[in-house]
């Protein structure tokens, strides 16, 4: 070599160079490893997620169990309950099935009045059920019902607040408003069903529109502790006795007023007014004590002492109108002998 370095000198220098490279690369790699350890092993380092933990977000629901168990000793011997379906009423089989089951268990027949003369349909009935009519009852029908209850017939009316629904079709979606047409019938009984739904963000069965109610001290309500109602309206009946009141802090959808404890079920003599129809539906009637309240309603409907030999027309059992077109459900014999 011209610079005087021997083979050993070159080897030392190359070795030093390689060692230097190894040390530098090693330090870099070690640093990267340490960095990876601190970032990847704990990706949520410094981030607490207590607000997402199950115990802080899950919802407790009221149990859905139990059955309608009417006491046969408090009901009248057999009879017919008419369910109105002649005023564009909005109910389906799922809505009335638990109620019908309860009535047939105590030996009652259920007739669905679809058209024709209401008085004729009520002539041999013990009770009438009116659920969420889509059109106002004409004065003649209201008069018939007044005479019916005047003779001891029992009346159960289930209204709803105004409901806004979404209609979807090939041509798009639109909003529609439905309201229970209970003005004429309610006026005849000094009753009204609010148009606003009740809501409660704190005490509810899962959703703020599924309010919880508490029973009052009214007779027959001792076994009802708490019920759930699903988009219910407040009900007011002049001189009536509330059966169920919404839980404290419940307020109407159109107001922030929490000063009132809103009644959602009221009885006055032989008429019961309800602010919700959904609580008695097949998939809801077991929630909380709904089935106990429904038992109360079955017993109420089946405890009329109306003498069915009386005509509602006052002069004849047949007013010549050709009668009414009814469908009969159930029978006079109890379905379940246990009841």
């Amino acid at each position: 070599m011209s610079d005087g370095l021997g083979a050993g000198g070159w080897a030392k220098r190359v070795g030093t160079l390689v060692l230097t490279v190894v040390v530098v690369v090693g330090i870099a790699a070690g640093g990267a490893f340490v960095s990876d350890q601190t970032s990847d092993d704990d990706p949520d380092r410094g981030v607490s997620m207590a607000e997402f933990q199950p115990e802080n977000v899950t919802v407790d629901r009221a149990a859905a169990e139990g059955e309608i168990t009417p006491d046969r000793s408090v009901v009248s011997e057999g009879g017919t309950v008419v369910i109105d379906d002649s005023h564009s009423n909005r109910w389906d089989r799922e809505t009335i099935e638990p109620l019908v089951r309860g009535l047939t268990r105590v030996g009652y027949e259920v007739e669905v009045h679809q058209s024709g003369d209401l008085a004729a349909a009520l002539d041999d009935a013990k009770a009438l059920v009116v659920i969420d009519p889509g059109q106002e009852l004409p004065s003649g029908d209201v008069d018939d019902i007044r005479r019916f209850t005047g003779q001891g017939g029992h009346l159960m009316v289930a209204g709803e607040p105004n409901r806004v629904g979404i209609s979807a079709s090939l041509f798009g979606t639109s909003l529609t408003t439905r309201e229970s047409s209970l003005t004429t019938l309610g006026a005849a009984y000094g009753a009204s069903v609010d148009t606003a739904y009740l809501r409660n963000q704190e005490t509810a069965d899962v959703n703020y529109k599924w309010i919880q109610t508490r029973s009052t001290d009214a007779e027959g309500m001792a076994d009802v502790e708490q019920t759930s109602m699903y988009t219910a309206a407040a009900v007011r009946v002049r001189g009536g006795e509330p059966l169920l009141r919404a839980a404290p802090e419940t307020r109407p959808s159109d107001s922030d007023d929490t000063t009132d404890t809103y009644p959602v079920a009221v009885r006055k003599n032989n008429a019961v007014w309800l602010g919700d129809k959904t609580f008695m539906r097949g998939d809801r009637y077991r929630v909380a004590d709904n089935e106990v309240f429904l038992t109360y309603l079955v017993e109420f409907l089946a405890s009329s002492d109306r003498d069915t030999s009386q005509s509602l027309d006052g002069d004849s059992d047949d007013d010549g109108s050709g009668g009414s077109q009814n469908q009969t459900v159930g029978g006079t014999e109890p379905v379940d002998s246990n009841y």
Binding site: G165, S169, L170
Partner: peptide, 11 residues
């Protein structure tokens, strides 16, 4: 498929 009209008023 062509939608059939569906109207929902949920509880």
């Amino acid at each position: 498929p062509a939608a059939t009209a569906r109207e929902e008023v949920r509880a």
